[in-house]
Design a protein around this nucleic acid. Structure first.
Length: 277
DNA sequence: CAGTGGCCCTGAGCGC
DNA sequence: TGCGCTCAGGGCCACT
């Protein structure tokens, strides 16, 4: 499910409403990717200051420490305002694996595949936070995603550009959908080695990444199967996808058939006419 | 150090 | 209807 746009759309859908709430209970369901790292009861009585995003992580700042949320492949959050308490809150569904009860509402993680995680960190510089966040690349929508650094970093990498984007250590938030989409917009074949990309093409790619991610956020993200924001609303950017999941269909620009290939066990989609080696 | 493949887990869709 | 197979939006880790 969630790449940067979906995580950001999720954040926007509940961050304001949970800010300044006090945590009064925590329910932990089945184990997620990593353990919480602290006794859940420790969080009771703490205050939620706000929710930020770093890459595909949500960082929930507390008056003491912070909680990192990751949605993995199939995770989604739902926020039920305190005014709507009742049956919904008392009956967690089978894949509801983490509940944060606050004075302003319930934040609940649903994650069938359990690749997601909820992790407590004492600070952003603590060992666990550094392990999860320390290697992350630049934020593409933060205004400091500059061409010089981007191109210089691409020069260091021999791997194919699709997988370099997915790795997230140069620029964060570009997952499997948006990597294909950004490369299409930039006219770059996904099989091109990163270090072979010229400065001009790196600039096209930089602009394409920013453009596709920003437009996806504006459209509420992509709902391929089950993504919804914390209000249960689905996204509709997938309707604008030029190549993702369109193998065999005509390119919207040139009419050629969209192709599919596998890179690192992940599907990649591209137009061999619009995207140059 | 960079690159590659395995693997974590569950559910949906498809062919037979 | 049921079974087995493939695939799915992520990313850590071991290995080369």
């Amino acid at each position: 499910m969630p790449e940067l746009p979906e995580v950001e759309v999720t954040r926007l859908s509940f961050a304001d409403r949970i800010a300044n709430a006090d945590i009064f209970n925590v329910r932990v369901g089945k184990p997620l990717r990593w353990p919480l790292g602290v006794n859940p009861a420790t969080l009771i009585g703490r205050k939620v200051l706000g929710v930020r995003r770093r890459g595909k992580y949500l960082l929930m700042d507390l008056n003491e420490g912070l909680v990192l949320w990751h949605l993995g492949m199939s995770g989604s959050l739902s926020f039920t305002p305190a005014a709507n308490t009742g049956a919904v809150i008392s009956r967690p569904q089978p894949h509801d694996h983490f509940d944060l009860f606050t004075t302003q509402g319930l934040l609940r993680l649903n994650d069938p595949r359990r690749f997601g995680a909820v992790v407590y960190a004492e600070s952003e510089t603590s060992a666990i936070a550094q392990k999860l966040l320390g290697h992350l690349g630049v934020e593409p929508l933060a205004g400091n995603f500059d061409l010089d650094t981007f191109h210089k970093n691409l020069k260091k990498r021999n791997a194919v550009i699709k997988q370099v984007l997915l790795a997230g250590d140069i620029v964060v938030g570009v997952g499997n959908i948006y990597a294909s989409e950004a490369l299409f917009l930039a006219g770059i074949r996904p099989t091109v080695r990163a270090h072979r990309i010229s400065r001009l093409r790196a600039e096209k790619l930089r602009i394409a990444i920013i453009d596709v991610l920003a437009r996806a956020v504006a459209k509420g993200g992509s709902t391929l199967r089950d993504f919804s924001n914390a209000d249960g609303q689905t996204g509709y950017f997938q309707l604008e996808a030029n190549v993702y999941d369109r193998a065999g269909e005509p390119c919207r620009l040139c009419g050629n058939v969209i192709k599919r290939l596998v890179q690192g066990q992940r599907a990649t989609y591209y137009c061999s006419a619009c995207q140059k080696p």
